[in-house]
């Protein structure tokens, strides 16, 4: 057999093995967390676990509703801020900014992704928490957590939205301008709607990052297992629930933390599926055009 054919076949198999590795890892993680979490779910019952409002492991009370609410609130809070800021930034980078401004801004946005989350947490703890305390409460709050998350998800939203704005066929823009649209009308009524699916995908991926964030959240949210009653109230996220307590947990408590992981896994699975569909629809739309 000629050597290039051997190389060709080997390469094909190597790539296949590598590709299936990620699938195997995903499956292994899911099966392992399920197995470790199952005893707690059996003993507590799915209903009490998901909808219980008291988390007191010492008293054998394992309700994760406060943490689910906490995770959802900080995620929504960060989205309310990050979507307008991110979209504005993406429009600036894709449509408005001169080459020089873009050359400065784009690396800055990309750099934000590389900052470790513990550093966001530190800045949040020493800057944002005291600032929020000026408004009221202890400062360790849903609001502080949302603000920190906003900074963390912005780069994801900006870069994906910018890419999808750039992917809109030139003809759309030219046609709009030729028909006498102003630049803003062109951007808002043509470019943004055409890039809608890509922008949606960016937002959903940003949400995924927000809901999965752990370290920075532990440092600024206060970790109290209560359902927050205001943006200034403390809270706890699903990820924080696991990270804060796993060190000393044993028996059913430990198992309940793994069950928390299963719930988190399912939430992120749903978010990613939505993102994938949004992206695919976006790509198709452009091909038709």
């Amino acid at each position: 057999m000629p050597s290039h054919v051997v190389v060709d076949r080997t390469a094909k198999h190597v790539v296949l093995i590598c590709a299936s590795a990620s699938f195997v890892i995903l499956g292994a993680i899911f099966i392992f967390t399920m197995r470790e979490g199952a005893p707690a779910l059996q003993e507590i019952g799915l209903y009490n676990f998901l909808l219980g409002t008291e988390w007191r492991p010492g008293q054998e009370m394992f309700g994760i509703l406060p943490m689910t609410v906490g995770s959802i609130l900080v995620t929504l809070g960060s989205m309310v801020l990050a979507i307008p800021i991110g979209l504005a930034c993406a429009i600036l980078l894709a449509e408005v900014a001169s080459f020089r401004v873009r050359r400065l801004l784009r690396p800055a946005v990309e750099l934000l992704v590389g900052i470790p989350s513990v550093v966001y947490g530190l800045v949040g703890m020493l800057l944002i928490v005291p600032a929020v305390r000026e408004i009221g409460g202890s400062g360790f709050s849903i609001l502080a957590a949302s603000l920190v998350l906003t900074a963390m998800v912005l780069p994801t939203i900006i870069s994906i939205s910018e890419d999808s704005l750039r992917a809109v066929p030139k003809g759309y823009k030219e046609a709009a301008l030729a028909m006498g649209a102003t630049q803003w009308q062109m951007i808002w009524h043509v470019q943004v709607p055409a890039a809608r699916s890509g922008i949606m995908a960016g937002i959903v991926l940003g949400m995924g990052r927000a809901i999965g964030e752990t370290m920075a959240m532990i440092m600024v949210i206060g970790n109290s297992p209560i359902i927050p009653t205001s943006p200034l109230s403390q809270g706890r996220t699903l990820t924080g629930n696991i990270a804060v307590e796993i060190m000393y947990a044993s028996g059913i408590h430990r198992s309940a933390l793994f069950s928390t992981g299963v719930i988190l896994f399912l939430i992120i699975l749903v978010l990613n599926t939505v993102a994938t569909f949004a992206l695919r629809r976006g790509l198709k739309a452009h091909h038709v055009a």
């Binding site: 008293q59 928490v129 202890s138 970790n223 109290s224 297992p225 403390q234 990270a243």
Partner: peptide, 23 residues
């Protein structure tokens, strides 16, 4: 008696100290 569930919880002695020192 139970510790109030609105208490800020930190996962280590060091983190408790830092939290108190900035609050």
């Amino acid at each position: 008696t139970l510790i109030t569930n609105t208490a800020i919880l930190q996962p280590s002695n060091g983190a408790v100290r830092t939290t108190v020192s900035i609050t």
